[in-house]
Amino acid sequence: METLLYLTLLISGFYTPSSCLHQYHLITNNMNWTDAQSYCRAHYTDLATVDDMEDQNRLITSVSFDGWFWIGLKKGDSMKWNWSLADRRFYREGETEFRNWDTGTPQNGNCVLMSTAGLWNNTSCDDQHHFICYDGKQDTNLTYVLIQENKAWIDAQSYCRQHHTDLVSVRNQTENTEIEKKISLRGLPVWIGLFQDSWRWSDQSDSSFRNWQSGWPSTDQGYNCTLVSSDPSSDYYSKWINVPCDNNYPFICCDSAVETPEKPQLKRQVVRMKMTPKDQHLNISDPAVQDSILQEIRNKLKEQGLPADTKVTWKKQPDGKVFHKEEEGSPKKEEEKKMKRMMTKREL
């Protein structure tokens, strides 16, 4: 049986910052959150959205004096699971939804632990545990870094962002198994980057990036809108807190994202491949089998000199499938037969 495989190569870092930058504008008028939102929508695009740490750092440097400022994050009505690492290009289709819950979970608790058996449980974010950081920097050979210090989830997140890239995201069963092996000998569960909250951006962005101060957000009734501090002398510098939306503060608007020469678009190359499985009973629709094949392809590409941080994913076809059996009589098949006949005549 011959099967067509479709392979997408993202010729770029395995994790790169956003190639589009928000343009931030400080408005020094004191307004409540709702009026600030209306002002930004009338004069710019919306209240500020923050997609990642690069956005966060640029937002802070765009502020010309020290103080507290509204951004566009507001508490909503429904809870949603998010990954701490918010860059959407880090995930291929469906990977943000991968879960490996233990029996009877999720229940109470907004932050997620992985047990030494590789199963997930949710618990209070204030609990203290070891944690796993993801490191996507090109100058390191460590992808998953086990930190054997007990920290609350928010403090573990801050540590990973300061020293590596972020708390680890687990995108598929293969990665889940790799992390399980990393922690199995320690006998203790670890924080991963999955959390749930009901916070939503004013511009309806689905960015899961959060940068709360340790101990926040407050659960006080009516504390539904978000402030960021630009005071470098404060322990709250660049961190977020939530307060009542009727309070009056300056605010930060943003324009639509723009391209910059320093941040080029990802280079994408689609390659069609043909494979003849040795095991005719192999279930090539099994995600674990597909992940295993991808890993072999990554290893082969590295051996041939392709950068180790190249991202390799399967490209799904319109019917949602990756693999297609090449049928007898198809134009491609007939062309191959014709070429074989021509080669045979030359040999004769």
Results as ranks from 00 to 15, higher is better:
Glu336Tyr: 07
Gln204Ile: 13
Glu180Ser: 02
Ile132Val: 15
Thr143Pro: 00
Lys267Leu: 14
Asp291Ile: 01
Glu149Phe: 00
Tyr44Asp: 14
Leu59Arg: 13
Gly187Arg: 03
Glu336Cys: 06
Pro307Lys: 12
Lys302Val: 14
Trp314Met: 11
Trp199Leu: 08
Asp155Leu: 13
Arg171Asn: 01
Gln213Met: 09
Leu119Ser: 13
Leu7Arg: 05
Thr49Asp: 08
Asp87Ser: 13
Pro232Cys: 08
Thr143Gln: 00
Glu262Ala: 13
Asp139Ile: 10
Asp319Lys: 07
Thr45Asn: 13
Asn242Gly: 05
Val322Ser: 07
Ile71Phe: 02
Met275Phe: 05
Pro244Ile: 15
Glu327Phe: 03
Phe90Trp: 11
Trp216Lys: 07
Cys253Leu: 10
Lys267His: 06
Ser18Cys: 03
Leu9Thr: 12
Thr174His: 05
His324Arg: 13
Tyr39His: 15
Thr28Tyr: 04
Phe209Cys: 10
Ser12Ala: 14
Gln138Glu: 14
Lys325Cys: 11
Leu301Trp: 03
Asp66Asn: 14
Thr96Asn: 04
Glu326Ala: 12
Lys333Phe: 06
Ser84Asn: 14
Leu4Lys: 15
Thr16Met: 08
Ser330Asn: 08
Glu334Val: 14
Ser330Tyr: 04
Leu306Val: 15
Thr34His: 06
Asp197Glu: 04
His25Asn: 11
Leu348Lys: 15
Cys225Met: 05
Ser234Trp: 04
Pro331Phe: 11
Gly320Arg: 08
Gln23Ser: 08
Gly94Lys: 04
Asn30Cys: 09
Arg92His: 11
Ser256Gly: 11
Ile11Trp: 03
Ser292Ile: 01
Lys267Gln: 10
His25Leu: 04
Met53Asp: 11
Asp286Ser: 08
Leu7Ala: 07
Lys340Asp: 09
Cys133Arg: 02
Ser124Met: 05
Ser64Gly: 09
Lys333Trp: 04
Glu327Ser: 07
Arg298Ile: 15
Val112Ser: 01
Met79Gly: 06
Asp231Gln: 05
Thr28Met: 07
Asp102His: 09
Glu334Pro: 01
Lys182Pro: 00
Val270Thr: 13
Met114Ile: 09
Asn32Ile: 05
Thr140Gly: 01
Arg346Asn: 03
Tyr91Thr: 08
Lys300Arg: 13
Asn248His: 05
Pro17Asp: 15
Arg99Tyr: 04
Ser238Cys: 02
Gly329Val: 04
Gln173Cys: 00
Ser229Glu: 05
Gly215Ser: 09
Gln56Thr: 12
Ala308Trp: 07
Asp291Thr: 05
Gln280Met: 05
Tyr223Pro: 02
Gly329Thr: 04
Val50Tyr: 05
His129Phe: 09
Asn108Phe: 07
Asp102Arg: 10
Ser230Lys: 07
Leu21Thr: 14
Ile241Ala: 04
Val228Thr: 15
Gly118Val: 01
Arg171Ala: 00
Glu180Asn: 01
Glu334Ile: 15
Asn32Gly: 05
Thr226Ala: 02
Lys325Leu: 13
Pro217Gln: 08
